[in-house]
Amino acid sequence: MSEYLFYFLAFVSIFAALLVVTAKNPIHSVLFLIVTFFAIAGQYIILNAQFLAIVHIIVYAGAIMVLFLFVLMLLNLNKESEPVKSYLMKGIGVLAGCLLALVMVAALHKSTMSPALGNPNEDIGLVGNLGKVLFKEYVVPFEVSSLLFLSAMIGAVMLGKRDPKIEPVNEITN
């Protein structure tokens, strides 16, 4: 049963991801992206990782997609302002992407997963177990990542704040 579900979700996610790239209307692209994210969240649930699935939906499908839609609304995209890309560039892009995909498929074809990951603990994805791993084994990276968020917050405030134009004592740049 879960095997069929896996193939169905995999098909949906790949199909929707292709539509994201090919859709003409950016709003449609965003909607297909949401479909992709939901399909991937479904995969997490099959793997018994409920926490990851919920976080994935809340963060990606919820927060980030809303942000995308806002930006699209504010940008006021239309045909005239759209940069025209030459067919040569598009062709090169498609070719490079296909080559990368080919190499990756070839690499996957002849490789083995680590035996350590062969029989994973079935319940590892549950919130309780995840929390134990995060706060025991990985507590240092967890704490260190707070530096990352703090600096990002400082930056957001600094860049977002409206500055009065000041005349520097000596012109530094320019």
């Binding site: 990985y138 240092v140 990276p141 260190v144 990542s145 530096l147 990352l148 600096s151 990002a152 400082i154 930056g155 600094m158 860049l159 500055d163 134009k165 530094i172 740049t173 320019n174």
Partner: peptide, 25 residues
């Protein structure tokens, strides 16, 4: 390797901001 990733990111995020810090230029 987790720390490698975090280190590179903690180093880079402030850099992006600092590179764009001269808002009038």
């Amino acid at each position: 390797l987790l720390m490698l990733f975090l280190g590179i990111e903690i180093m880079s995020i402030p850099l992006y901001i600092m590179a764009g810090s001269n808002k009038h230029d």
